[in-house]
Design a protein around this nucleic acid. Structure first.
Lengths: 224, 224
DNA sequence: TTACCCAAGATTGTATACAATTATTGTACA
DNA sequence: TGTACAATAATTGTATACAATCTTGGGTAA
């Protein structure tokens, strides 16, 4: 198994909270589980560290990032600064392929919401935001927002969002998409700007969810 | 020599363009120069990669980051989004120690400018901006702006800034400091917002500077 | 009982050897 | 002369062994 693949598996596992925040990641155990030596594992952990998905304590080990409500505040503060501008730029630069991808994802979001599958809807919503970000054509802005979106998604999977106002959320996504499709950058900026606080309000920090999988289960689940 | 120290030496060398953009960093050469094995060198190179100071091409090697005018555009775009807000937050949260550090640095900037030492003035100005950023109390915002400030500084040392309007630049720094000192967040935001474009305009992309040092010289220079 | 210290276990940090990949150079052939 | 190809050199990627560091448990003395 190559380093890139190991990275993606661990990343997705953390991302979907199958490795719950706080879990220690021991190099030897990971190496054994993936059938490689510790060397590529260390490289992957470093990489995850610089994306804030794991925290590395010197001579202690690596732990899955565990965001506090305070850190959530910081994350959304930066998201508020960056994402509206990314939406504006997306309105100027989005390709037809990206626009149709957004449309498909919105359709899926609606269906999953109606089918009562909020967790899978969250993944689709993440993809939707990611597509907008990738359309902005600014590599640094993309990199920062990819990280911010990942951390936000961890918040959504770690804390409870079952009381979220899904219809309202969907309406906002649709409005952002319409603004981008009609190349109305200022409108995309404004709606995205409103959307950020409403996402933060959907999170109930008083309730944590706690699923957890073994490393073997994780490798099987994210094999594709 | 420890990994942390090696990291700082390489970082500063890239930072001050003593290792010119584009230079290949060969693991074995670095390991020999620092008197360690390739293992910690690889870790350092990964770390520098995630700060965008080096670019790693798989199976090819690591190269000092070489910013194009286009990338400069992207860097300053993001800087425009983040730094004014950091200045506002600094006005709310800066400690007395941080305020006096800013004041000292401004004094040094003025002296270096009058003594005709523009390169050393650039380093002091970087420290000044860094101090403001660190005062904003938002870890993620700090991390992003530290990277942005580093990349900006590389632009200043790589391209020519000898035609910059130093007195005007100093006045703007002073005005930002005064706004922060008097806890006027909105004013700090506004002046910082004006300051970003004027920094970009100081860069003459048509002229590149080209000093270069050997790895041995670099280790000696950054030994302290 | 509690505080302290020491030793054993667990885990990360580093060095080195070897494998895999890529670039380069030289050579043969059209 | 130019191009294709093969051999060689240079460099990164990986595995493994060993060193250093930190945590933890038990035992001893105050």
């Amino acid at each position: 198994m190559g380093e890139e693949r190991i990275y993606q598996i661990l990343r997705n596992a953390i991302f979907n909270a199958d490795l719950p925040p706080g879990t220690q990641l021991v190099e030897t155990s990971l190496a054994e589980a993936f059938g490689v030596s510790r060397t590529p594992i260390r490289a992957v952990l470093q990489r995850l560290k610089y994306e804030s998905l794991v925290q590395i304590v010197p001579n202690r080990g690596a732990f899955v990032y565990c965001p506090s409500p305070d850190e959530a505040e910081h994350i959304f503060k930066v998201r508020q600064l960056l994402e509206p501008e990314a939406a504006r730029l997306a309105a100027y630069h989005a390709t037809d392929v990206q626009l149709s991808k957004m449309e498909t994802l919105l359709q899926q979001e609606k269906e999953l919401y109606l089918q009562g599958e909020p967790v899978r809807a969250l993944e689709v919503i993440h993809e939707f935001h990611l597509t907008i970000v990738e359309a902005c054509q600014n590599p640094i802005l993309i990199r920062y927002l990819q990280e911010i979106l990942s951390l936000s998604h961890i918040l959504f999977t770690f804390y409870d969002v079952s009381d979220a106002d899904h219809p309202h959320s969907y309406e906002e996504h649709l409005a952002i998409f319409e603004a981008i499709r009609t190349r109305d950058g200022d409108r995309a900026y404004d709606i995205a700007s409103q959307h950020v606080p409403s996402m933060k309000n959907d999170i109930d920090f008083s309730r944590k969810l706690n699923r957890s999988l073994s490393m073997e289960q994780i490798i099987i689940r994210y094999a594709d």
